[in-house]
């Protein structure tokens, strides 16, 4: 919880640009993860079942084509058929036909003696139904399919076919790699897209911020060119209006300041005049007082005389 709060706090302090990129990438990663899980689910449940069925169908087809030669006990034709199958399908590990006594009649291998094949190929000799299992054949995992050959309710033998699992794994892994590749490409595209979108979103805001800074410094004539009609465009418009108003106010203030200056000057002149007048009056008053004093002195003198 503490960590989450820390991360949240750190996130909040990040620049807007980085916030947006991180947000978009987080959503993209989440979607990729969900897509990956879904794909694995589809592969493991659906695709593998389909491959299972396809291999079984393949094996049954080989069994059907072998039937005539099995019934005529034509080991040479069976051997030829099985080698031809191996040539055409790279994922065939082995095809071995056992007769009803468990003896190998034909197979398509070139480095295994018949006694060795017994150990590796056919394990459940009692079964009379098709079996699909995984086992190891000469150190490699194989999809082993055993198909009993029944003719008119009589058991003739069992055809054992092994498909290398690695060929199927290769296909599955190629699908996975393709998916990973596509998801990675998607992630890269998302990343660049997020950079592009972030630029589109954040640049106008940054311009507004820059303009606000300049306005703050006193450049009131600056205007933002509103390139969008969204909220940011509206914000830019409002900023322009604000700048216009500020500019108007500034002009008025300047004019008022001028008038005040003029009035102030007038007042100052008036004050000077008043002062001069006052000084004049005071001067006159002083002279009057002095005159009065002189008159009184002269009167007094006269009286004394």
């Amino acid at each position: 919880m503490k960590n989450i709060k820390k991360i949240k706090a750190k996130f909040i302090t990040l620049p807007l640009r980085r916030k947006i990129i991180i947000s978009i990438m987080l959503v993209a990663v989440l979607l990729i993860f969900i897509a990956w899980i879904s794909m694995e689910f589809i592969i493991s449940h659906n695709l593998i079942n389909e491959i299972n069925n396809a291999k079984l169908a393949n094996a049954k087809d080989i069994a059907e084509r072998s039937r005539d030669f099995i019934l005529t006990k034509d080991a040479a034709k069976l051997t030829e058929l099985y080698f031809d199958e191996k040539e055409q399908k790279e994922d065939i590990a082995y095809i071995v036909f056992y007769d009803e006594k468990g003896k190998i009649v034909a197979h398509n291998l070139l480095d295994s003696k018949k006694e060795d094949l017994h150990r590796h190929v056919w394990t459940d000799k009692s079964s009379r139904s098709s079996i699909i299992s995984f086992r190891r054949f000469m150190d490699k995992p194989v999809w082993a399919i055993d198909i009993p050959i029944i003719e008119e309710n009589v058991y003739i033998g069992t055809l054992c076919i092994g498909f290398y699992k690695e060929y199927i794994d290769v296909v599955l892994n190629r699908i996975r790699l393709l998916a990973i590749g596509l998801l990675c490409i998607g992630a890269i595209i998302t990343f660049f897209l997020s950079l592009f979108l972030t630029r589109i979103i954040v640049e106008p805001i940054e311009k507004i911020a820059e303009t606000a800074r300049k306005i703050g410094k006193g450049e009131l004539k600056i205007r933002i060119k509103a390139q969008t009609k969204d909220e940011i465009g509206m914000l830019a418009e409002e900023f322009n209006n604000m700048a216009k108003n500020l500019q108007e106010r500034d002009r008025k203030l300047t004019e008022s300041a001028k008038e005040i200056k003029i009035s102030s000057k007038k007042l100052s002149n008036r004050v000077d005049e008043l002062e001069r007048f006052h000084r004049l009056i005071v001067g006159r008053e002083i002279k009057m007082i002095e005159l009065k004093k002189e008159i009184k002195r002269l009167k007094s003198k006269r009286e004394n005389e």
Partner: peptide, 25 residues
């Protein structure tokens, strides 16, 4: 750096093609 790391990872993943070889004598 993020771009470079992503591209390198992609290449590594693509190079991880699981090659199977038919069992050869």
């Amino acid at each position: 750096n993020i771009i470079i790391i992503t591209i390198v990872l992609m290449i590594l993943l693509l190079l991880l093609v699981l090659r199977t070889e038919r069992r050869e004598i």
